[in-house]
Design a binder for these strands. Structure first.
Lengths: 142, 142
DNA sequence: CGATACTAGTTGACACATCAACTAGTACCG
DNA sequence: CGGTACTAGTTGATGTGTCAACTAGTATCG
C-alpha cells in the first residue's frame, strides 16, 4: 500500500538524517533549522514569532527551543527598542561556526540517502506530488 | 525544490494526523501504533522486542512507551513461562475499545488529507518512489 | 486618559525519543 | 557443573513537542 510505504520511508529517512546531524555536529535537527533560518535572514536576527512562522512552528515550541539554544550558547537575545514585549534572536559566533560546519555535511547526506535514490524525473514528480498534498491540506478543515 | 516540498508536506501531514488522533481519541500516535500492532497480531499479545521490531523502534523506546501505556491501562504484561527475562504485552479491554474506536476515524483522516489529494496513478507513483528510497537507504552505510 | 482587546512571548506539566549504562535470565562450550 | 557470551528488557538523564494558562506591552477607541 502506498500509504504504508510512504510512512515507513519518511520515518526512516527523517530518523537517519536527524541522527546524522546529531552525531556529525552535536546539534539536533531543531538546532540546525533554527540556526539556518537565522543566518539566512536578511539582518541575521529575527523576532521569535517571525522565526516560528518561517519554519512553521508554534510559538511555544520556538520559545522553548530558543531557550535551550541560548543556554548552550548557540543563539542570543538582543533588546528590541521598538517593542518592549519581545527581542531579536540572533546566532552567536559559536552558532555561526556550528551551522557553517554542519550545513554542507547535511546536504551531502540528503543527496546520498534521498536524491541519489531517484531519477531527476522521479524527484520532480515527488516535488509536484508534495506540493499538491500541501495545497490540498490547506483546503481541508482542521 | 523537491526536497523542501517533501519535507514541508511530510511535517504538516504527520503533524495534523497525530494531533487528530490525539484530539479524537485521547491517544497519541504512538499509543495508536502500539495498540494496532498488538491487536492485529496472531495471539493478541507480543514480546516487547517483537513489537519493537514490527514497528521498527528501538527497544528502549518501546519499553518506555509500554510503561506509560500500562500506567494508563491500555496494555498489560503477562508472564512468559518460556523465558524468565521478559513478558508478553497485550491490550487490555480498554485498549481494544480505544483502538476500535480510533482506527476508522484515523483511516478517514488519511483518506481526506492525503489520498484524496492525488490521482490513483500519483498514489501509485508515490508508493513506488517510497519503496525505492527505502531500498536505496538499506544499501547505504549508517 | 482609561477600558478593552490584541499581540509577543514565557511558563509548567506532561508525553515522547535517544543514548548509554545497567540487570537478569539464557545458551553454549569446555 | 562453571564460565563466558549473548539476549530481553529496564532505567535515568537529557532534549524535544504540545497544550493551556499566564504576563506584559501595544493599539484602539470612546
Amino acid at each position: 500500500m502506498a500509504w504504508d510505504s510512504f510512512i515507513r520511508m519518511q520515518e526512516k529517512l527523517i530518523g537517519r538524517l536527524s541522527r546524522k546531524v546529531q552525531s556529525d555536529s552535536g546539534m539536533s535537527a531543531a538546532d540546525f533549522i533554527v540556526l539556518a533560518s537565522l543566518t539566512e535572514s536578511d539582518e541575521g536576527r529575527m523576532r521569535l514569532l517571525d522565526l516560528a512562522k518561517r519554519v512553521e512552528w508554534e510559538k511555544s515550541r520556538m520559545s522553548h527551543q530558543v531557550a535551550r539554544m541560548a543556554k548552550r550558547g548557540l543563539v542570543a537575545r538582543e533588546e528590541c527598542p521598538d517593542d518592549g514585549r519581545g527581542a531579536f534572536i540572533l546566532a552567536t559566533p559559536a552558532g555561526y561556526r556550528a551551522i557553517e560546519e554542519a550545513a554542507p555535511i547535511h546536504v551531502e547526506h540528503v543527496r546520498r540517502l534521498f536524491v541519489d535514490a531517484l531519477t531527476p524525473e522521479e524527484l520532480d514528480t515527488l516535488g509536484r506530488i508534495s506540493a499538491r498534498v500541501l495545497t490540498h491540506m490547506e483546503t481541508q478543515p482542521d
